[in-house]
């Protein structure tokens, strides 16, 4: 799935996660109801090469944040494998094995909830260094905190302040300083700019790109904003109800979207050039993930669905630009994709 021949930094295959929504056993016996499982992640495969960025996009509830949590060990997979430079992480708890986990960190969506309000910023940033033992000497640790603060565009004096003294963008800079404090090689970024204003979003995206260039970082980037994803990514994976429906290089997925869902997403991006203000908008909402439609999950909203799509799940196989999970694409039933106009996503 990549132009590179070297081994990928992260390799995810057949990743699954089900959550049990069943009523308690005794209720099930009395009401004769079945167990209810929601397949939040239902067989996801991708690889990320060192120094590259893969983004996962999709609507709420498609499972993209669950993939992020599974990779970081914040929740345990129900099946499949997660390999970081060959080391198997599926089934291991958060933080274990330490020598691998130290090389992976996460930036969270909400910069107001992800920083401890009772800790000073220096302590927040030093915590990963302390827990992984990378800087045992407190004075060296504080010097490193000061360096990190300046590196992300804050001042060393800011280490003595509390999180509430900072704006959203500044807090996200603190989160980034914390994430890179143990010199990780791989960062999972779960909607890092969704809570920020446009002008601040640009600052954070530029900072992340700069860090990638200077430190050679590899990113898994989660977002619902296609324009942001277009700016930051090398590869893009589109998720729908727990499955990857398309995976392709960023430039090609926007120029030549294969899967009908990718086309729908591109059509719904508000267009700031105002060239097609009055076009008809696609209808439908994401179905309830507890009872997903059979066959291809997308068929109730798909303009190209036929009888096969309603019964048979399409395989995730090679397409013109990458991989796609669609009978119509595989049978060549789809017309050539239209090139998307210059558009902007949510800001």
């Amino acid at each position: 799935m990549s132009h590179h021949n070297e081994a990928p930094l992260l390799e995810v295959s057949g990743l699954r996660k089900s959550f049990d929504l069943s009523k308690p056993f005794i209720n099930r016996v009395i009401e004769r109801s079945e167990r209810q499982l929601v397949k939040a992640v239902d067989g996801v495969d991708f690889t990320i090469q060192r120094g590259q960025t893969l983004s996962l996009v999709g609507e709420s509830g498609c499972g993209k944040s669950t993939v992020a949590k599974l990779i970081m060990g914040l929740t345990r997979p129900s099946g499949g494998s997660i390999r970081f430079e060959g080391a198997e992480l599926a089934g291991q708890v958060a933080g274990k094995p330490a020598h691998v986990r130290r090389r992976m960190q996460m930036i969270f969506q909400d910069p107001y909830a992800s920083l401890n309000p009772r800790w000073r910023v220096a302590r927040i940033i030093a915590e990963p260094m302390k827990s992984f033992g990378t800087h045992p000497d407190p004075e060296a640790r504080r010097r490193e905190v000061d360096r990190l603060l300046e590196f992300v565009g804050l001042g060393a004096a800011d280490g003595d302040k509390f999180p509430h003294e900072f704006s959203g963008g500044q807090r996200q800079r603190i989160s980034i300083a914390r994430a890179i404090s143990t010199k990780p090689e791989f960062l999972v970024c779960d909607e890092p700019t969704s809570a920020l204003d446009v002008s601040v979003q640009a600052q954070i995206l530029n900072l992340m790109r700069e860090l990638q260039r200077e430190l050679g970082l590899t990113y898994l980037f989660i977002s619902h904003d296609l324009a942001v994803v277009n700016y930051i990514s090398d590869w893009i994976g589109v998720m729908y109800l727990g499955r990857l429906v398309e995976l392709a290089p960023a430039a090609e997925i926007f120029a030549k979207p294969q899967h009908p869902y990718t086309r729908l997403l591109l059509d719904t991006v508000p267009d700031i050039s105002m060239s097609n203000r009055d076009i008809e908008r696609p209808a439908g909402e994401v179905p309830n993930p507890i009872t997903p439609p059979p066959g291809c999950h997308f068929h109730p909203r798909c303009p190209h669905a036929n009888a096969r799509c309603k019964t048979e799940m399409p395989e995730f196989i090679a397409s013109a630009t990458g991989h796609a999970r669609c009978h119509a694409v595989q049978e060549g039933r789809l017309s050539a994709p239209t090139t998307a106009p210059a558009a902007a996503g949510a800001v």
Binding site: V198, S199, Q201, A202, L205, L226, A227, V228, N230, Y231, A250, A251, F254, A255, L266, V269, I272, A340, P341, A342, A343, A344, G345, V347
Partner: peptide, 9 residues
């Protein structure tokens, strides 16, 4: 500062 699809500065 708004990123746009089709442009990648």
């Amino acid at each position: 500062s708004i990123p746009r699809i089709g442009e990648k500065p």
